[in-house]
Design a protein around this nucleic acid. Structure first.
Lengths: 337, 337
DNA sequence: ATCATATATGTAATCGGTTACACAACAAGA
DNA sequence: TCTTGTTGTGTAACCGATTACATATATGAT
C-alpha cells in the first residue's frame, strides 16, 4: 500500500494524504479524519526512502566506533543513541575494529546513504585518505563530529578529553607517592590520545626532574594481549619499574592479568594508574587508581554537538572542540605499602 | 552530481553508467573505462536511497538491543556487526533501554525504512502489541530473528540458550557443594530468560528434594541497584541463605557490590553462581562461578540465520530456533570453605 | 547471402513520496 | 459589489537510481 493507492481508496489526492501525514498545509477537519481512519485501517506506513529521496533528508546519522566491546566505547554509543532517539534520528552503526578498510567502507556508506551527519572515532589520526574524505564529506554539507580521537590538524569538531593534562596529573600522583622508576605502556603510534598520554607522562617526569628511561617506555596497542606482554617485558628488566602508567582501560586489564597470574599485588609489590575507569572493578572495590571520565556523557555531548550543526545548517568559522572533564581517582594502587 | 549529470558529461546515457556501476548487462570496454574515469574524476557516489527506492532493497538490517552497556549485549552486537559488515549489510541500531515505547518506535522505523530484516531482543515476551507487529512485519516479508529473549508462542526464529537446563545445572553445582538454603534473585516477570532461569532453579531444587522456600525467592530486574537491594534483603533474613543464584551478569554485580561493601567473601561466608560471565572478573581471577556462553558467537549466529532468510526469501515452514551452548564454569564461589 | 545470436546503448517508465503551482470557494473589508 | 486574503484540494514535476524494452551493429553459422 502506497500513498497513491491509499489516496484513491479515500477519494482524495496523494498531496492531501501527504499533508495530513506531515501536518502541513491546509486540510479540512473532515478530510483529515477520513485520511487518518484509512491510515489506521490499512496500516499505512509511508516509505521513509521515498521521502528521503524527495526531501534529501534522511534523519539518520552514522556512527563509527573502533570496538564496541570496550566499555568506554559502548558507553559512548549509549550516550549517542540516547540523544539520537530523543530527537528522532536513526543510527547507522559500524564497528571499525581498528581496520582502515572498514573505515573507508563506512565513509563511502555515509555518502551513498546520504546520512545527515556522522560521529566517528577514527582509526588513526594520520591517515590522509580518511582525513581527505572527512573534509570532502564536511564540505558537501554533512557535519562531522569526532569522539575521543582527534585528526591531525585539529580542523574537525569533536568531544575529547585533555589527555595530556589528565595523564600528567595521573603520573604526578605516582610521583607524589614516592615513585621515580615509572614506566608507561603506550597506545599505538597512530593514536592521538595515545601520543598525548605519552606526552603527559613525559611532562610529569620532566617537571619532577626525573629523567626519562627509554627502557620504561614500551609500545602497546590499547589491547589486552599486547599489554600483558608489555608488562612482562617491564617486570623482567634488570631494574624493573616500581610503577606503571597504562594508557587505556584494556591496557590496564592486560597489566592486571599479568599481575594476577604472577601473584603480584597492586598497591603492594607494584603501583599503577590507568587511563579510563573500569566499572566492574569499581563495584568490587578493586583498588585500581585511574584517570576517569564520563564516557556516556561524552557520547551525549557528541550527539548534541552534531544536533546543533544539523539545525544550524552552517559550519561555524572556528570548529567547536570540547573537552569532557576528567577526575584523578586514587584508590590506592598508586602507592606502595 | 547525480547519475544523469555524470552521464551527460561523458556523452552516454544514465543506463550505461548504471550498468558500469553494477557490472550488469553489456558495456563496451572502452565505454566502461570512460565511465569509471569520470566516476573517479567527479567522485561520483550513487544514491543508495534512489537505488533502494527503485530496487526495493535497502541492504540494511535493524538491530534492537535493550542495553548496550551490558557487556553481554555489546558482545552480541559485536558479533552481529562483524557478520553484517562481511556481507555488505548496514546496521540500523537502537537501544530500547527496556522501554516499550522505544521498541514500538523501532518497529515503526523498520517498516518505514523498509529494512531487509531485523534482529531483536524484545523488551518483554508478553507484549501483544510487539508480538502482533513482529508477525505483521514478518508476514510482509521482513525476516525476524530473536536473540536471547523469546516471544510467547515460540513462533519466531532465534538464537537462544537453554536457560532452564543451564540454570538447573548451575544450581546443581551449589547443591553438590553441600548447599540447601539456596536463594535466587530472579529477572523481571516479563522476561522469558528470567522465568526459565527461575524454572531451572526450581527444577534443581526439586530433583534434589529440597523444598522451595518462598523467602529465598526475591524479584530482581536484571539491574545492579535492584540486585543490591535483593541481596540485602536475603542476608537480613532470620535464616539467610548460604548460597545465591543470580539471574544475570548485572544481578551478579549487584550481589558482589553488596558483599564487597559488607566485607562478605564469596566462597567463604557466602556462595554464589551467576548467569553469564563477566570478562573483567575473569581477567583478575576473581573466583565467581558462572553459567557462561559465548555472546559474540550468539550474535554471529543470529546474523547468519538472518542472512539465510535474506537469501532464501522464503520463511521455512517451521521456525529455526537454535541454542548456543553454555558452560558451567566453577571457580570456587559455588562452595564454602 | 541470410538469419540467428551476441553485443552495445538509449528511451522512458517506475519506485513512493513532497511540494510548487494552479484553481476554487468562501469570508471579510472597502 | 469588488477586492483581497484565507482555506482547501488537485495536478504534475521532481528526487536519483534501475531496468524492461526497443533498436542497432557485429559476429558467426549455414
Amino acid at each position: 500500500m502506497n500513498i497513491k493507492e491509499l489516496a484513491k481508496t479515500i477519494g482524495v489526492s496523494s498531496a492531501t494524504v501527504s499533508r495530513v501525514m506531515n501536518n502541513s498545509g491546509y486540510v479540512r477537519d473532515e478530510t483529515r479524519k477520513k485520511v487518518l481512519q484509512a491510515v489506521e485501517e490499512y496500516q499505512f506506513v509511508p516509505s521513509a526512502i521515498a521521502r528521503s529521496l524527495s526531501t534529501r533528508d534522511t534523519l539518520s546519522v552514522g556512527v563509527l566506533i573502533p570496538d564496541i566491546e570496550n566499555e568506554y566505547f559502548s558507553s559512548v554509543i549509549s550516550g549517542i543513541s540516547e540523544i539520537a532517539e530523543q530527537n528522532g534520528y536513526n543510527i547507522h552503526f559500524m564497528g571499525s575494529n581498528e581496520n582502515k578498510q572498514i573505515e573507508q567502507d563506512f565513509l563511502n556508506m555515509v555518502e551513498s546513504q546520504r546520512l545527515n551527519g556522522i560521529i566517528i572515532t577514527p582509526v588513526s589520526e594520520m591517515d590522509e585518505r580518511t582525513k581527505n574524505k572527512l573534509l570532502h564529506i564536511q564540505k558537501s554539507g554533512i557535519p562531522v563530529v569526532l569522539v575521543d580521537r582527534d585528526i591531525k590538524g585539529e580542523v574537525f569538531e569533536g568531544v575529547f578529553v585533555d589527555n595530556l593534562a589528565g595523564s600528567c596529573e595521573g603520573v604526578n600522583a605516582l610521583i607524589k607517592a614516592g615513585h621515580e622508576r615509572i614506566a608507561i605502556i603506550t597506545g599505538p603510534e597512530t593514536s592521538r590520545p595515545g601520543r598525548d598520554r605519552f606526552k603527559g607522562y613525559k611532562k610529569a617526569l620532566s617537571e619532577a626532574g626525573i629523567e626519562l628511561n627509554p627502557e620504561y617506555v614500551v609500545s602497546g596497542d590499547f589491547k589486552i594481549e599486547k599489554a600483558y606482554e608489555c608488562t612482562e617485558q617491564l617486570l623482567n628488566l634488570k631494574e624493573p619499574p616500581t610503577a606503571i602508567f597504562s594508557s587505556n582501560n584494556l591496557t590496564s586489564l592486560g597489566c592486571l592479568k599479568y599481575f594476577t597470574e604472577h601473584k603480584i599485588k597492586i598497591g603492594k609489590q607494584i603501583s599503577m594508574i590507568g587511563f579510563d575507569d573500569i566499572e566492574t572493578l569499581k563495584i568490587i572495590d578493586y583498588k585500581l587508581s585511574v584517570i576517569a571520565r564520563d564516557a556516556k556523557q561524552q557520547g551525549r555531548a557528541a550527539m548534541n554537538l552534531l544536533l546543533e550543526r544539523l539545525k544550524d545548517k552552517t559550519v561555524p568559522e572556528s570548529p567547536v572542540r570540547q573537552n569532557v572533564p576528567y577526575q584523578i581517582v586514587l584508590r590506592g594502587s598508586e602507592k606502595l605499602k
